[in-house]
Simulated scan of single mutants.
Amino acid sequence: MTLPLPLDTPAATWHWHDLPICYQQVGDRGPAVVLIHGFGASWGHWRHTLPVLGMDCRCYAIDLLGFGGSAKPTPGQPLSYTFATWAQQIADFCDQVVGEAAFLIGNSIGAIVAMQTAVSFSDRVLGVAALNFSLRLLHERHRATQPWHQRLSVPLLQSLLKQSWFSTFFFQLAAQPQNVRRALLQAYRRPEAVTDELVTMLLKPAADPGAAAVFAAFTTYSQGPLPEDLLPHLPCPAIVLWGEADPWEPITLGRQLVEAAAIEEFIPLPNVGHCPQDEAPELVNPILQAWLARHAPPIHTP
């Protein structure tokens, strides 16, 4: 098995809207691939994927604005933390750093970012692979289908999170090692995958100035696209992988949405939770390699 990319590997920096954006690259030949992490994560969540896909591809893992080693400006100054913003970030990254269209692979909200990029900037995207895409169950359009206590409690909590004193307190409470570990043990089916290294990786950006405001901005963001808005309009080859044991994004709901769209494959991953690329790279990486090989543009020789 290929060793993961060490988390202390020096990262590169790209300036976007005069803001530093962190990314990693492995591989210098073949088609371009951009890996997009989920909420609260960073390029390090792809440390098992980068060196494997980098054997045959130019593989990039980027930190979305507001996360990881990327800038965390005050929401709305100048940019808001929305899928439209992040899709523009990925499209510009393909233009300015990658230099051509790329395959996008995303986990959780990163998969929604990949879909939004493909729909809004079809010329920049060769294909989309979505891993346990976020169902956005707290979206305002889902509110009528929620239990009565959630219909009352979610808007109240979101309203409180818009108050800086409360959001700072709530974020500081959530960003404690024991609470991060507890959440990971819920999200991951394999407890041995929840390592001290993983907890430290997720906690490090939480100490950055602005991290609490980013957390509040996204947890109160109940608008924007739902996956069912984007899936039918994907203009490129697409596959979905889903950890069957995901407690946050139920596979039954994901499968229903995919069946209504033109997706090549829906691949369930047994005994795996919300972040398959980190928890079970031995299952995920071969699937991604085969998919990329199947759709990679032909190499033109003189």
Rank of each mutant, 00 (worst) to 15 (best):
E228L: 07
M201G: 06
P177L: 03
Q178G: 12
N285A: 06
A206P: 00
A280V: 08
P297T: 14
T219E: 05
V194A: 14
A175S: 08
L269G: 07
A206F: 02
R181N: 04
A216I: 07
P235F: 01
A183I: 04
P297L: 14
Q176M: 01
V199C: 02
E264N: 09
P250D: 12
G273F: 01
I239R: 12
Q223K: 08
C236W: 04
E197L: 06
T219K: 07
C236E: 08
R255I: 01
E259L: 08
L173I: 07
R181S: 09
L288E: 07
Q176L: 01
T252M: 07
R255H: 12
D196E: 13
V272K: 06
I287K: 05
P177Y: 00
I263A: 03
S222A: 12
A217K: 12
Q186S: 13
F215V: 10
F266A: 11
E259N: 12
K204Y: 02
E192M: 01
F266G: 07
Q178I: 03
P250G: 11
Q256W: 05
L202E: 00
E259Q: 13
D229Y: 10
L173T: 11
H295V: 06
Q289W: 02
A183K: 05
L234I: 08
P250F: 11
A193D: 13
A206M: 09
A262N: 14
W291N: 15
H274L: 02
G224P: 02
P235G: 10
L283C: 08
A213N: 05
